[in-house]
């Protein structure tokens, strides 16, 4: 009687262990699927685009024939756009972060600003495009220009920069602030001479990561009128411009197969730029991590 029961339990136990094993394999396979698609994506892009990637491609403007088309206008346009985005979003973002961390009183207004930033981070990028279209393109009459695109993108990544800068400012040890105040430093002296210098690596890392999001964004720039056919580099803030993702989108949506190769080559360039930016961010993080 007893023996039978024991045998029964043992049998069930074996079953449970086997199911556990099976599920573990299943979970592992699920994880692998994500990774496989990452590899497939890279492989596909490389094999499609590498044939078109050469010096001419990097130095040519868009062209009606796939063999002559190049990413030059997009690459330079993207870089110029990022400079505008960085200047505006870092200034406003770091300012906001310092305000929220060091000056803001604990009241409803501050809480409202915090919640507002959190919600802005979840707003689809295309909505920022519509905002830019109304304000920058039409109300401010910038038209479809570099500055309209730059300001739109700056607002888009502003929440990310604020949050990163807030974290960087918060991670400056309280002892260091105390040391400064203890010397008779004022609040702004403490912020500008102690807190900000110590927070710079964190702010830089966050900024680069935010910019690497912005440099791949397409939808809002379509709305605020980044053009595909651009045959000169923008010479002022009020000039027409293009960026890499716009070029890629344009080429991808053409039916002839060669254009897919051209688009693939553009994606390789875009991904290399992204890789560079992220490597710099990781490098900065590793270099300064142990300091604080």
């Amino acid at each position: 009687m007893l023996g039978q029961k024991e045998r029964h339990i043992k049998k069930r136990m074996e079953g449970r262990v086997i199911i556990n094993r099976l599920m573990m394999v299943l979970f592992g396979v699920a994880t692998a699927i994500g990774l496989i698609f990452l590899v497939l994506l890279f492989y596909r892009v490389l094999t499609q685009g590498i044939g078109y990637l050469n010096w001419d491609y990097l130095s040519n403007f868009p062209a009606p024939y796939p063999e002559e088309a190049g990413i030059y206008a997009g690459l330079i346009g993207s870089i110029m756009l990022m400079v505008i985005v960085a200047i505006f979003s870092v200034m406003v973002g770091v300012g906001s972060a310092i305000y929220l961390e060091e000056y803001a009183p604990k009241n409803r207004m501050t809480e409202f600003i915090r919640i507002n930033i959190q919600n802005l981070a979840g707003v689809p990028s295309i909505v920022f495009g519509l905002l830019g279209l109304t304000f920058f393109v039409y109300l401010f009459s910038f038209g479809y220009t570099l500055i309209a695109g730059g300001l739109t993108m700056a607002l888009l990544i502003l929440p990310v920069i604020i949050v990163a800068a807030q974290e960087a400012v918060r991670s400056v040890p309280a002892e260091m602030k105390e040391a400064s105040y203890g010397m008779g430093a004022t609040k702004w002296q403490t912020i500008s001479r102690v807190i900000l210098p110590a927070a710079v690596p964190g702010i830089l890392t966050g900024t680069i990561i935010a910019l690497s999001r912005a440099i791949g964004e397409t939808a809002p720039l379509i709305i605020v009128g980044a053009a595909a056919a651009i045959y000169t580099l923008p010479e002022s803030l009020l000039a027409k411009y293009t960026v890499m993702p716009i070029q890629i989108y344009n080429w991808t949506s053409r039916p002839a197969e060669e254009w897919q190769f051209v688009a693939g080559a553009g994606i390789i360039v875009l991904l290399v730029v992204l890789l560079l930016m992220n490597s710099i961010a990781v490098w900065i993080r590793n270099k300064y991590q142990h300091r604080l």
């Binding site: 990774l35 497939l40 994506l41 892009v45 791949g216 890629i248 897919q260």
Partner: peptide, 15 residues
């Protein structure tokens, strides 16, 4: 895995 989240959506569209 998080690299997947950093890939521009236009690249996904192409893919």
């Amino acid at each position: 895995l998080e690299v997947l989240a950093g890939i521009p959506t236009v690249v996904y569209g192409y893919f």
